[in-house]
Design a binder for these strands. Structure first.
Lengths: 167, 167
DNA sequence: CTAAGTGCAAATGTTTTGCAGAATC
DNA sequence: GATTCTGCAAAACATTTGCACTTAG
């Protein structure tokens, strides 16, 4: 009876639907802006931050532009709704990822190039459940960030000066 | 040959000494301010943030006051030196803890009262080592935050309205 | 002496917020 | 039609930084 064995999970309702339901329970409204934002957020599985999302939204040829404030407000709502979650902090910005229709997992984070590598180890959550139990703690969630150097960033010992990733 | 089995570790050199060594390797200087700061940081095992430290320093009857800028600058140095590390983020501030003379551990963080409970599970680091190996990733460190409700904050089901912790 | 450190005040950069007009239910 | 939203500009806030003066080595 494992929770999830595959890379993606079949979802009963679409993110938009789930969002609508959540909003309803809070007597909040499904506006054009909110719809556009969920859609854009779930258009790609990449990790993203608020600013990236703003830019992606700006490139859409939708009817209207969505303001930065609304993006921030929506991210908070989406997080509350359980559709999205903060993965980590990078360069002082919060990084988000899908938390719906996607199995529980954690990340290896490359300190040099910033790449995020996902991995899954059910034993971790199990172990944490036990730790929590021992402390009379009701676990809601966990965040595990493993920092270090990814394959590409630590392999070239000093062959040729690695191509810079700056410009 | 386990790394650490006890709640605290015997340390060869004092934090101040280790700091001095670190500074030396970087051609940096041990100033009065830096000395006061390490001392204050290691005067208590509590978790702390920059502001708390500034206040603690302000209460010392030392010769001179240490400026907020210097505290921030020093925290970064102490982190580089491996004396201190960021544990988590709370209310938009970075939380620090000792990373020297203290065994590897992780935290349960109460979402309501903010309490941090430390725990240790060597299996976690071992498991992560293996995951890293599988991905050709060179692990440097990890941060694991488990959020939820601590014993006190989740026990009173609704007996009496829990005393608020706000004022 | 010279390079490095400090305090101050101002800057930074992300995220939040007050408000007036716009839109949903 | 009332309540909730949005966009804008301004605010908030933790942290960083430029600069002139001090100080360690």
């Amino acid at each position: 009876m494992s929770l999830t064995d595959l890379a993606s999970v079949d979802v009963a309702v679409s993110p938009v639907e789930k969002y609508r339901e959540f909003l309803a329970t809070k007597s909040l409204r499904m506006t054009r802006e909110r719809a556009i934002i969920v859609e854009e957020v779930f258009a790609s599985h990449e990790h993203f931050d608020a600013d990236t999302l703003v830019q992606r939204l700006a490139q859409r040829r939708d009817s209207k532009r969505v303001s930065r404030s609304t993006v921030y407000r929506s991210l908070n709502l989406l997080e509350e709704a359980g559709l999205v979650r903060k993965v980590a902090r990078q360069d002082d910005r919060d990084l988000y990822e899908h938390d719906y229709g996607y199995p529980q997992h954690d990340h290896l984070i490359c300190q040099r190039c910033g790449k995020l590598i996902e991995f899954q180890r059910n034993e971790i959550a199990e172990m944490l459940e036990q730790v929590a139990r021992e402390h009379g703690f009701r676990m809601e969630s966990h965040r595990l960030e493993v920092s270090g150097l990814c394959n590409e960033c630590c392999s070239p010992p000093s062959n040729r000066p690695k191509k810079l990733n700056l410009l």
